[in-house]
Simulated assay, not measured.
Amino acid sequence: MKTKKGTTGFVALAFAGGALFAGWASAEDAPVAQEAPFGSVAALEDAGADDADDGGDAEVGPAAPPKQTLAISADKSPRPKDSDWDVLGVERSFSPGSSANGCRLQNIREWVRIRCGGSTAQIAMLGGHHEEVSIKLDPVGSDEFVPFPEGGEIVFPVRTGDRRVFEWLGVEFGYKGMTSASTFLIISESWMPWDEGPTIYAR
Rank of each mutant, 00 (worst) to 15 (best):
E167I: 01
W24F: 06
W168Q: 07
P37M: 15
D162K: 14
D54N: 13
A47T: 09
V112E: 05
T120W: 11
P157M: 13
A58Q: 08
L105G: 15
E167M: 03
G56F: 07
L169E: 11
K5Q: 05
G170C: 02
G56M: 10
E144M: 15
L185E: 07
D29E: 10
A30T: 02
A22T: 03
G197C: 00
A181W: 06
T69W: 00
L137S: 09
G9D: 12
A49K: 13
K4L: 12
G61C: 01
A12E: 02
I186L: 12
P193L: 02
G141W: 07
N107S: 15
R104W: 03
N107V: 10
G48H: 13
A100T: 09
G17W: 10
G6E: 15
I135R: 07
I154A: 06
W85D: 05
I154M: 14
P66W: 00
K176C: 04
P147T: 04
R163V: 00
G61T: 10
A42M: 13
G118W: 10
A100I: 05
K76A: 05
E45L: 15
P65F: 01
R109M: 11
R115A: 04
T69M: 03
F94C: 03
P66D: 03
E110P: 06
T3C: 09
W85Q: 05
G23T: 08
A52Q: 14
A22K: 00
F148I: 03
Q34M: 09
W85S: 01
A49Q: 08
T199W: 02
A74W: 08
A49R: 12
I108Y: 05
L105V: 06
W191A: 03
G102Y: 06
A42P: 00
F94S: 06
L137N: 09
I72P: 02
P80Y: 12
A124D: 07
D143G: 08
D50G: 04
F166W: 10
A121F: 09
E59F: 06
R115F: 00
